[in-house]
């Protein structure tokens, strides 16, 4: 009896937490990407949208609800997902190419890269980009065969060192000229948006 009450409490708490975090609620399940924000297209769990993206687990569960998560995940993914892929990972999108072969770059990987590059991309765009990048990476990986060899790297074709000029002050550009193309100006300065996020 106590066990049942306990389990019920866990489920209720998890649902309440997930609802508050926007992970569940009326409407489609909202996937969480590795970045922690950036909700793009919403996808139903377990439904193939016909774009060669099979959806795995997409919910971040508090550790306490892990067992429940695993059960739900397996059921919806329709395949085997080991505990490692569920525990501690936000998303395990599995992207396949036209032949159904799994590709090396996951949508999560591409999402992470888009974050680093500060480019907002939707889930559809990320899913489309991953196989394209894979094709390119596959063809350029051939350079890796010299990775172990003791060859000096070349960064510039015509090597130059110590290119100096005399330490003399010369006129630079007036502030007004530099501000002309600016998106927003205030007090002869570039007006930037707020630096801190709402979540910060």
């Amino acid at each position: 009896m106590a066990k049942m009450i306990y389990r019920a409490f866990i489920v209720a708490a998890t649902i309440a937490w997930s609802w508050a975090a926007g992970r569940i609620g009326p409407g489609p399940w909202v996937p969480s990407t590795g970045a922690g924000h950036g909700f793009g297209e919403n996808h139903w769990i377990g439904v193939s949208t016909g774009d060669n993206v099979s959806h795995g687990t997409s919910l971040v569960w508090p550790p306490i609800g892990l067992a429940l998560a695993r059960r739900l995940t397996r059921a919806s993914a329709g395949g085997d997902l080991d505990d490692a892929s569920v525990a501690g990972r936000a998303t395990t999108w599995v992207v396949t190419d036209a032949e159904g072969e799994p590709v090396a770059l996951s949508v999560q990987d591409v999402a992470r890269l888009a974050d680093l590059a500060r480019i907002e991309m939707s889930q559809d765009q990320l899913a489309a980009l991953a196989p394209q990048l894979d094709v390119i990476l596959e063809s350029v990986a051939v350079v890796g065969q010299v990775a172990e060899q003791d060859i000096p790297p070349t960064s510039h074709a015509i090597a130059m060192t110590n290119v100096f000029r005399d330490d003399v002050v010369t006129p630079s550009w007036p502030a007004e000229a530099m501000l002309v193309g600016a998106p927003a100006v205030e007090d002869s300065q570039f007006r930037a948006p707020r630096i801190l996020d709402e979540e910060a």
Binding site: V140, V143, G144, V146, P152, P153
Partner: peptide
Amino acid sequence: YYGSAQKMRT
């Protein structure tokens, strides 16, 4: 990738 490419460039 990049490190190897620089060696290949040499």
